[in-house]
C-alpha cells in the first residue's frame, strides 16, 4: 500500500512537470501574439504586457497572402484526404475480403512502399511532376498522395475482422459487389474512415517539404511552407510570426477538440501489428 502511494506521488509529479512544459509554450505564444513588438522584445521578458493589440494579426495578413495560404492548404489537405480514403478503403476491402489470384503478393507490394523514404523519391517525383506539367498545380500536390500504404493497411485490418457471412447474405439478396461495398461495408467502416481521414488531414496540413518543393509561385504555397519561409532575408519580427503560427495551428486544434478520439485512434492503430 505504502509503495503504491509513493509510486503515484512520483508519477503525479512527473505528469505535472510534463503538463506544464507542454502547455506553457502554447500559452506564451498565444499571449505574445497579442503583444506589440516593443513588449515582445522587451528584456527581461514578461508573461503579460500592459496592453494588447490585434496589430500582429493585421500585419501578418498584410505581409503575406494568408487567405491564399489557408485556401491552398485546405484544398491540398481535403483533396488528399477525400481521394486517399476512397482509394485506400477500396484496396483495403479487396485485400481483406475478396479472393483473387496474387492477393498476398499485392498486399506485400503495398506494404513495401510504407518503407520507402521520401528522401529517395523527392527528386524523381519533382522530375515526374515537371514532366507532366503538374508543378505548381493542385493536382500536382494531391495526386501523388492519392493512396498510402498505411491507409490501405488500416482499412484492411478493419475489414478482415468483419464476419464472412455479411457479404454472403447480401449476395443472396442479389446485390452486386459494388453495392455490397457501398451499401453494407462502407457504412460499417465509418469510424475507421473518419480516423483515416483525420490522420491524412493532419499529415497534409502539417507537411512542409513536399508542398514547398512542388510549388513555385507564392500564390500556390501552403501555410506550413509560407510560415517556414516568412523570415525575410535580413529582418525578422516575432509578433507577426507568432500570429501566423497561431493561425496555422488553430484549425487542426479545433478539430482535435471535437474529434479527439479519432486522432488518438489513428496513432494507436499505427502501432498495431498484424
Amino acid at each position: 500500500m505504502k509503495r503504491t502511494n509513493k509510486h503515484s506521488v512520483l508519477s503525479n509529479i512527473l505528469l505535472i512537470i510534463v503538463l506544464i512544459s507542454v502547455v506553457f509554450p502554447f500559452l506564451w505564444v498565444l499571449v505574445s501574439s497579442f503583444k506589440n513588438e516593443a513588449d515582445i522584445i522587451n528584456y527581461p521578458p514578461k508573461m503579460f504586457a500592459g496592453h494588447y493589440t490585434l496589430a500582429n494579426y493585421v500585419d501578418i495578413w498584410k505581409t503575406i497572402p494568408m487567405t491564399r495560404y489557408i485556401i491552398n492548404t485546405m484544398i491540398y489537405a481535403v483533396g488528399v484526404c477525400v481521394i486517399s480514403i476512397t482509394l485506400d478503403s477500396f484496396s483495403g476491402y479487396a485485400l481483406a475480403r475478396m479472393r483473387f489470384r496474387g492477393r498476398t503478393f499485392f498486399y506485400y507490394v503495398v506494404m513495401v512502399t510504407m518503407f520507402i523514404p521520401f528522401a529517395i523519391t523527392m527528386i524523381p517525383l519533382f522530375m515526374e511532376l515537371s514532366e507532366f506539367g503538374m508543378i505548381n498545380t493542385y493536382p500536382g500536390l494531391i495526386i501523388p498522395h492519392a493512396t498510402t500504404a498505411f491507409g490501405i493497411f488500416m482499412m484492411r485490418s478493419f475489414f478482415v475482422g468483419l464476419p464472412e457471412d455479411l457479404a454472403e447474405a447480401a449476395r443472396l439478396d442479389g446485390l452486386n459487389e459494388f453495392q455490397i461495398y457501398f451499401r453494407i461495408m462502407l457504412p460499417l467502416a465509418k469510424p475507421q474512415l473518419i480516423t483515416l481521414a483525420i490522420f491524412s488531414l493532419m499529415g497534409s496540413w502539417n507537411d512542409l517539404l513536399y508542398p514547398m518543393l512542388m510549388t513555385t509561385d507564392q500564390s500556390m504555397r501552403t501555410l506550413a511552407a509560407g510560415l517556414a519561409l516568412i523570415g525575410g532575408q535580413h529582418i525578422t519580427y516575432y509578433g507577426p510570426v507568432m500570429a501566423g503560427t497561431i493561425i496555422s495551428m488553430l484549425p487542426l486544434f479545433i478539430i482535435y477538440m471535437f474529434a479527439q478520439k479519432y486522432f488518438i485512434q489513428g496513432s494507436a492503430m499505427s502501432g498495431m501489428k498484424e
Binding site: A94, R97, F106, T113, I123, L125, E128, T147
Partner: peptide, 27 residues
C-alpha cells in the same frame, strides 16, 4: 470477387507504381 478485386485495387496500384516504385528506380 476473383475478378472485381483487381478493379478495387487497380487505382491504388497505379498510383503506387507511378509515385513510389518508379521514383525509387529513377532515384
Amino acid at each position: 470477387p476473383k475478378h472485381v478485386g483487381y478493379l478495387f485495387i487497380l487505382p491504388s496500384l497505379i498510383a503506387l507504381l507511378i509515385f513510389a516504385f518508379i521514383p525509387v528506380v529513377i532515384g
